[in-house]
Simulated scan of single mutants.
Amino acid sequence: MKLGYHIGYWSSGPPEGALEAITTAERLGFDSVWTAEGYGSDALTPLAWWGSATERVTLGTNIVQMSARTPTATAMAALTLDHLSGGRFVLGLGASGPQVVEGWYGQPYPKPLARTREYVDIVRQVVAREAPVVHAGAQYQLPLRGGTGLGKPLKSTVHPLRSRIPIHLAAEGPKNVALSAEICDGWLPLFFSPKSDAFYRAALEEGFAARADDMPGGREDFEVAASVPVIVHDDVEQAAAMIKPSLALYIGGMGAKEVNFHHDVFARMGYADVADTVQDLYLAGRKDEATAAIPTSLVEDTALIGPPAKIRDELQAWEETVVTTLLVRGDAATLRRVADVLG
């Protein structure tokens, strides 16, 4: 199993020591470095800026939000970064949720799977550069229908370094996970648990079965890069306490009560009552109580925490899942310690 470093998105400003952590990850033999975006920092600029200090690691977005850019704009960025990195770029895409899509980007959220399918098709066309891009979909039209009538199909002026840039899809629900296996080269899970491996494996198999026969890649090449907190600490409860506030935010406060995909992940994992309690408390403004309502067992199901021997023992369960890469976070010192335990 490979290791990757996930910088994540910024909070109030750039994460301190990010460049040192990235270069440390490369020196330690990490396979990849990833950036993210929410509704503050973007994913592409930090990847280009900090990625320029690397020579070997794969540089990926986890994730670029589709509603933030048209498919052709995203494809332009992918072409550019792939050239600048010498063919090391991976495009990680995600639909995000209605709170951000409609509240921040002012774009409609309905039919995210159909939108994703069309989006990926357009990006593939731009990168392949085999012909002017044409797409007559329900979500996107190139050229645009109902405009001035002056638009015409265009082909990128930039020739691709690679005619096929890997595309990974962030997904949590079974239909979206299946879609990643059908049309993409990888899946970017969040809150993955070895307990849920059979569920996700079945969803991926459904997608592989629907994959076009002439589409490159497949099961043998498919990447699953899971964001997994790893905290090496002698006290398991103290380690869990470092993660619980973030879990409370995602379970309770990311999205609306009616639509929160993170909440649903934990409900499927067997923590439906816990997830409901955390959500009710969080939305009522009782964040400390929401955090306290998360059992350590839930943390241990989705993270590797505790003394080195415990982590090494539990790692075996992860190695038997569909996950091919563990994406970890932290500063340079944390990465060195994680590499020592997991390496």
Rank of each mutant, 00 (worst) to 15 (best):
Lys2Met: 10
Tyr5Thr: 00
His6Gly: 13
His6Ala: 15
Ile7Val: 15
Trp10Thr: 05
Pro14Met: 10
Glu16His: 12
Thr23Phe: 05
Thr23Glu: 13
Ala25Asn: 01
Arg27Leu: 12
Leu28Val: 14
Ser32Cys: 10
Val33Tyr: 01
Glu37Cys: 13
Tyr39Gln: 15
Gly40Lys: 11
Gly40Tyr: 11
Ser41Phe: 08
Asp42Trp: 09
Thr45Val: 10
Thr45Leu: 07
Pro46Thr: 07
Pro46Tyr: 02
Ala48Asn: 03
Thr54Trp: 05
Gly60Tyr: 03
Thr61Phe: 06
Asn62Pro: 01
Ile63Ser: 02
Val64Tyr: 09
Met66His: 07
Ser67Cys: 06
Arg69Tyr: 08
Thr70Ile: 05
Thr70Val: 06
Met76Gly: 11
Ala77Ser: 15
Leu81Val: 05
Ser85Glu: 00
Gly86Lys: 04
Leu91Tyr: 01
Leu93Ser: 00
Ala95Ser: 14
Val100Pro: 03
Tyr105Glu: 01
Gln107Asp: 14
Gln107Arg: 15
Pro108Asp: 01
Pro110Cys: 08
Lys111Phe: 14
Ala114Tyr: 07
Ala114Gln: 15
Glu118Val: 00
Tyr119His: 13
Val120Cys: 01
Asp121His: 15
Asp121Asn: 15
Ile122Gly: 04
Val123Trp: 10
Arg124Glu: 09
Val127Asp: 01
Arg129Leu: 09
Glu130Asn: 13
Pro132Val: 14
Ala136Met: 05
Gly137Asn: 09
Gly137Met: 05
Pro143Met: 05
Gly146Lys: 08
Gly147Pro: 03
Thr148Phe: 11
Thr148Lys: 10
Gly149Met: 08
Gly151Ile: 03
Gly151His: 02
Lys152Ser: 09
Leu161Val: 03
Ser163Val: 02
Arg164Ile: 07
His168Gln: 07
Leu169Met: 07
Gly173Ser: 12
Lys175Gly: 03
Val177Asp: 03
Ala181Arg: 00
Glu182Pro: 12
Ile183Gly: 04
Asp185Trp: 06
Gly186Val: 05
Gly186Ala: 03
Phe192Ala: 13
Ser193Ile: 07
Ser193Leu: 08
Ser196Glu: 15
Ala198Lys: 14
Ala202Met: 14
Ala203Leu: 04
Glu206Asp: 14
Phe208His: 07
Phe208Gln: 11
Ala210Pro: 04
Arg211Met: 00
Ala212Trp: 09
Asp213Tyr: 05
Pro216Thr: 08
Phe222Cys: 14
Glu223Asp: 14
Ala226Ser: 14
Ser227Trp: 00
Val228Met: 11
Val228Tyr: 04
Val230Thr: 05
Ile231Met: 02
His233Cys: 14
Val236Gly: 09
Ile243Ser: 00
Lys244Trp: 05
Ser246Met: 06
Leu249Asn: 06
Met254Gln: 09
Met254His: 07
Met254Arg: 09
Glu258Val: 12
Glu258Tyr: 08
His262Ala: 10
Val265Phe: 01
Phe266Arg: 01
Lys287Asp: 03
Asp288His: 09
Pro295Leu: 04
Val299His: 02
Ile305Gln: 02
Ile305Arg: 03
Lys310His: 09
Lys310Ile: 10
Lys310Phe: 06
Ile311Pro: 06
Asp313Leu: 08
Glu314Ile: 01
Gln316Trp: 04
Ala317Met: 09
Trp318Pro: 04
Glu319Asp: 10
Glu320Ala: 12
Thr324Glu: 02
Leu326Val: 11
Leu327Gly: 06
Arg329Pro: 01
Arg336Gly: 03
